[in-house]
Computed example of a mutant assay.
Amino acid sequence: MTTEADPAASAPGEGTTRATISDVARVSGVSTTTVSHVLTGKRPVAASTRERVEAAVQQLRYRPSRLARSLRVGSSQMIGVVVPDITNPYYGQLTRGLVDSLGAEYGTWVCNTDGSTKRERSYVADMVARGADALVMTSVDVEGDAVAAAVAAGVPAVSLGESVDHPLVDRVLAADEEASQSAVEHLVARGARRVGIIEGPRSFGHSREEGYLAALAAAGLKAPQQLRVHGDWTRVGGREAMLRLMRLPQRPDAVFCANDLTAIGALDAVRSLGLRVPDDVRIVGFDDIEAASLVSPALTTIANPAYETGWSAAKLVLDRLLGRHTGSRRTVTLPCRLIVRETS
């Protein structure tokens, strides 16, 4: 039995060998520089020449090497994105805004820390080592050592939230304190007098708690410590925290939750106890993820501009990368708004 090799199978780009720009130049009968001009569109090329190059690209199934380009221009064209919970729809919307704002020139590496400082530090160090051009992150590392090391290595960083305090790290913030205050004021206006709060992990900022406290103080109401509990931003964590509150000898008549997944978990807890929302307890969330309007009863919440946050973070990053800003930290603060539905 004899086996004959298929000539087409060994052609560059047709089999396991990846075609190079030199292969495209050889097949189309032009220089590699001309091929580059066709691919980038940065220099005019005769129509007939362009057609030959494009035909060769298609024949060879040529794909430009990002690695080769990064070595040539000294840039990976990649942005590292670090978030605590990629399953939270808020971060999906945020990343979409970031990618849309960055445009086709940049890709993203998205890392999920599960709220672990150890993971965050490892991811940041790894992305810097891999040549990430910049970092965009929701940090849980209160020390900020990894981010500081990245900035010292010449990698710009943008913090999504107030957890990173560094003179060269730009920040994109939601107007958390004012929005949280309006949420609690809404509950008080509906008759609530014992208002609890389920916050995020202790390592995150406290602006939402400060808004909660400000609203209660303005109404002449107390905020006993037993009504202030911590969750982990998840639905399961929200359910567990709400059960702790609802099993108090004097349970709350309203609860402000620091994000929507927590609030949806709180709804689960109330149902499991045979109680009703808003009749027995009122609930307000924060973020306005899509599920907030789909649960029953529909969740009253604060609309947190996730897409706009990602979009703004990309603009800050590009300003640094393109040399449009080289100075001290800038802060972009985005407004939030209360959306009243059925749980309050």
Rank of each mutant, 00 (worst) to 15 (best):
E162C: 02
G238P: 07
E177W: 01
G238N: 12
E105Q: 14
R247L: 05
D170I: 01
L273K: 08
R52D: 09
E54Q: 14
R61N: 15
P305K: 11
V35T: 12
S65T: 13
S328V: 12
G107R: 10
P84R: 04
A134H: 12
P167F: 04
A263D: 06
P64Q: 06
R18F: 01
L227I: 03
L213D: 09
Q93R: 14
S293P: 00
R276D: 15
I198F: 05
P156D: 08
V57H: 03
T138G: 08
K118N: 12
G220R: 12
I79Y: 05
V73F: 11
A313N: 04
I21N: 02
M137S: 05
P84N: 10
Y123I: 08
A291E: 15
S10R: 15
T33D: 10
D288Q: 14
R337C: 03
I264T: 05
A306M: 11
L338V: 04
A11D: 01
R18A: 13
V184E: 13
A266F: 01
T343V: 02
A134Y: 05
R69V: 09
T262F: 03
V83D: 06
L338C: 11
S272R: 07
R69H: 11
L216I: 08
I339L: 15
R96G: 03
Q58T: 12
T331H: 01
W233H: 10
V124C: 04
R63Y: 11
G191F: 13
M246Q: 11
V38H: 04
A303D: 14
T3D: 03
G265Y: 08
S180R: 08
D232R: 01
T20W: 02
G13H: 05
A11T: 10
T117L: 06
T309I: 14
G327F: 00
A263V: 08
R18W: 00
E162G: 09
A8C: 02
P335D: 11
H166E: 11
